Computed example of a mutant assay.
Amino acid sequence: MAPSRTVQGGGNHTSVTMFVLLGLSDLPELQLMLFPVFLGIYLVTLTWNLGLTILIGMDSHLQTPMYFFLRFLSFIDICYSSSISPRMLSDFLKDEKTISFTACATQYFVLAWMAISECCLLAIMAYGTYVAIGNPLQYSAIMAPSLCQRMVAGVYGTGFLGSLVQTTACFNLYYCRPNIIQHFFCDLPQVISLSCSDTFISQLILFLEAVFVGFGSFFIILLSYVFIAVSILKISSFKGCVKAFKTCGSHLATVTVFYGTSFSVYLNHSSQHSTKQDKVLSVVYTILTPMLNPLIYSLRNTEIKDALKRVMKRAAGLPQKE
């Protein structure tokens, strides 16, 4: 699992080329039970997110900034889930859950890229929600298509650079023994703890990115919702207030699930008794959240339901009502 090779200092040392993932459970019978459950979750995630992406692209009534961002959120969720679920599913059927050093680095790079991008995109969506509620008449002018496109490009660019810095700093460290990751995926804090070299720089980079990206985007979301609350209080009609709450309700639910679980994991990471709890919470924000996001935005959204009816009628060749 970890063949010897010559490393710095001229001596022969054992250098890790493979990691062992402990997975969600070490009970074979439980793993066989979990396989169909998580396979179903992954298939639902792909189906709902792909379906929502295609629907938004096909229906002209959904060509608004909110649905433009939602389409990219669905794409992020597909990549986010796919960076973990396929390997986790295959590991359920294996006795030896090994992952190569390169595959581990690749998995974390994609995961971190999508996670950082989602943080930034949720912050942008919060700002867009504020504009929709606070300045509805100027919404189209403020959230112009060119601005939205630049925002999305900035989201992916920020995610790519942030992930590249984290992954490079972590996987350029020297790893000897042990090589056991007490998780079901290559989580950076878990990997760094296995390094035999000085991890100060890597941990500092991880901390700074968590502060500036994680808490920074969360602060923007909180600030946006403060302004949203002020705007709602200025609305005189009850119907207007209900409409405003509906506008921000789905986004608020998504933010609560994503940030609530991820912060719970990483703020309590030092706890000695939190390994099982961390795994459960990690399942929520890496596996369940990508599945829940399209459901949250779709199930009670009349615009998406109407768009789906229009697309189905068009496919069946039925007349359309505009």
Rank of each mutant, 00 (worst) to 15 (best):
R150G: 04
V242M: 14
C148L: 11
C241V: 15
F184Y: 14
D198Q: 07
F263Y: 15
L147T: 11
G216Q: 03
Q166I: 14
A210P: 01
I228Q: 00
L173P: 03
F200H: 10
T247P: 00
L208F: 00
Q166W: 08
S262K: 08
S262P: 00
C241I: 14
V155W: 03
N172G: 12
L223I: 01
F238W: 14
V255P: 13
G157P: 02
K279Q: 10
C176F: 08
F171G: 03
H251C: 03
L267G: 04
L252H: 13
K279L: 15
F215K: 07
V230E: 08
H269L: 07
S236G: 01
G249M: 07
K246W: 07
L222V: 02
V284Y: 02
N172W: 11
T256N: 08
K243F: 10
C148Y: 06
G154I: 09
T261I: 00
Q166E: 15
R150M: 12
F215D: 05
T167W: 05
K234W: 05
R150C: 08
S224M: 04
S217M: 15
G260K: 11
A169R: 05
L194H: 07
S163Y: 06
Q149M: 14
S163H: 03
F238R: 14
S270C: 05
A210E: 06
C248F: 09
I201E: 10
S271W: 06
F160L: 15
V191T: 01
I180C: 04
L164E: 09
F171V: 02
S197N: 11
D278Y: 02
A169P: 01
I192S: 02
I180H: 10
N179G: 13
G240K: 11
I221M: 06
K276A: 14
Y259L: 13
P178D: 12
H273R: 12
